[in-house]
């Protein structure tokens, strides 16, 4: 029973436009979950914070700390919403696949959106493009171009390669961690269902441990992705680089 992806080929008759409907579905679900949770948590804001507002403010302070660690707060201030959205979206995406994996027919519908390399690379590519955009916007074109040849013109090829490797490592690190976690969870489910009395017993404890670890990994990877985003941004927008 091979699990396949529900791919819609040649959407709207456009030959290159294939869409994995499961990805579409999961991205929409993750975004909706993040949006709903954020909005619920930020209702009834008060001067004297209580309950969920405290938690949300803690997240804000956390991301603020990440940004302040990597760059001057005055320039990094505008990246706060980006960092907040990244960390919450990736965290929720990571955790969706830890809770369960859903299969309808042969198609895998419910999983972490971040367990798909296409989606993580899209996110990382977007981040790298943003670093270039803000690098030019904040430092100016001249300073931006000078960054490629400093401290010496020999660095030019390496600097150009770095942009691509940054994109790849940023996206694939997230994908690899989450995908590996899901694969192992899938294996444990296999073991549990293959041999009902013994396999289930043998699989239950590792399953529990691995799910806990996956939650941990999910949090760490969300943090790492946000952190690296801010590091790459600071390379481009800080004047001391």
């Amino acid at each position: 029973m091979n699990h396949t992806a529900p791919i819609a080929h040649d959407l709207f008759g456009i030959s290159w436009l294939d869409v994995n409907l499961a990805n579409l579905f999961m991205v929409a679900v993750s975004s909706a979950v993040v949006f709903i949770l954020s909005v619920i948590a930020s209702r009834k804001l008060q001067m004297r914070p209580t309950g969920l507002q405290n938690f949300m403010e803690w997240i804000v302070e956390f991301v603020k700390g990440i940004i302040s660690d990597t760059m001057d707060w005055k320039t990094g201030k505008i990246f706060l919403p980006l960092g907040l959205t990244l960390i919450t979206y990736i965290l929720v995406s990571n955790l969706l696949g830890v809770a369960t994996v859903g299969v309808i027919g042969h198609d895998l519908w419910w999983k972490s959106p971040t367990a798909d390399a296409t989606l993580t690379l899209t996110l990382s590519g977007m981040v790298i493009l943003l670093t270039h955009f803000y690098g030019i916007k904040i430092q100016g074109m001249k300073h931006y171009l000078k960054g490629y040849v400093s401290p010496s013109p020999i660095m030019l090829p390496f600097k150009i390669i770095e942009e691509f490797t940054n994109t790849l490592t940023l996206g694939l690190r997230l994908f690899g961690n989450i995908y590996a976690g899901e694969v192992l969870l899938g294996l444990l489910v296999m073991l549990a269902t293959a041999n009902i009395p013994f396999g289930f017993i043998f699989a239950a404890v590792p399953m529990l441990a691995w799910q806990g670890f996956s939650v941990f990994i999910g949090g760490i990877q969300a943090f790492v992705f946000t952190m690296l985003t801010m590091v790459y941004l600071s390379h481009k927008v800080s004047s001391d680089h």
Binding site: N2, L24, S31, Y89, D116, T118, L119
Partner: peptide, 30 residues
């Protein structure tokens, strides 16, 4: 075992549609 690995059947290929979907939803969410 092979079946299980196919959990990641969606790994292969960079589909433009997926990218657009991801980008659209992320920016909308942002």
């Amino acid at each position: 075992y092979i079946d299980v690995l196919s959990v990641g059947a969606s790994v292969g290929g960079l589909r433009v549609g997926d990218m657009l979907v991801q980008l659209f939803f992320f920016l909308l969410l942002l």
